[in-house]
């Protein structure tokens, strides 16, 4: 089967060792994680991992099941790009002198819809959000013009589906909890 980029979202309890528990499912199959973003999500006490990885669907489906099997994981989901809206953010640091030298950088920044975060006599920092190729395109333009530092985040994503499956799971579990009382 053809390799493609998948996005996996994982909802977990906020506990020590979750990152290890998730990453080991990839590492035992020698799968390289392309990007990883973790933060608290809108549900109290629940953290969300957004992971991208290149592989085939059968392998990814099984990875998701093995992640979900971990006790501290609520639910895990597999998505292709057409099922989600996603972004990443990047920061670019250039010498302020280069910005002032000509209007080339200003032109590039306008063209790419980037914004200025900070201007100091020494350096200027731009920010760009977008898809990987858009972030990369700005990098390619700024790099020959004296780019000093560049960093980009992992992907964050929300689904296009009308249903929030993790909510359904939590409701189901809440019902179970009440029945056990």
């Amino acid at each position: 089967m053809e390799n493609q980029l998948f996005t996996i979202t994982v909802f977990t309890e906020n506990q020590v060792s979750l990152l290890h528990q998730i990453s080991m499912v990839f590492s035992r199959r020698c799968l390289n994680i392309e990007s990883l973003t973790v933060s608290a999500c809108s549900i109290p006490g629940v953290h969300k991992f957004t992971i991208t990885c290149k592989s085939d669907r059968a392998m990814m489906e099984h990875v998701v099941k093995q992640i979900e099997k971990r006790i501290d994981v609520l639910r895990a989901f597999l998505h292709t790009d057409d099922e989600i809206v996603f972004q990443e953010v990047a920061l670019y640091k250039v010498p302020t002198a280069s910005v002032l030298e000509s209007n080339e950088i200003e032109h590039i920044i306008r063209e790419h819809g980037a914004r200025v975060l900070e201007i100091q006599p020494e350096y200027t920092i731009f920010e760009k959000t977008g898809h990987t190729d858009e972030v990369k395109a700005l990098f390619d333009k700024l790099n020959p013009l004296g780019l000093r530092q560049f960093v980009r985040s992992g992907r964050i994503a929300v689904t296009k589906a009308p249903v929030e499956y993790v909510d359904a799971f939590l409701e189901h579990q809440e019902k179970r909890r009440k029945s056990l009382e």
Binding site: V73, L74, R177
Partner: peptide, 8 residues
Amino acid sequence: CNFIRSYD
């Protein structure tokens, strides 16, 4: 313990 939120 007979319930864990993340485990069914």
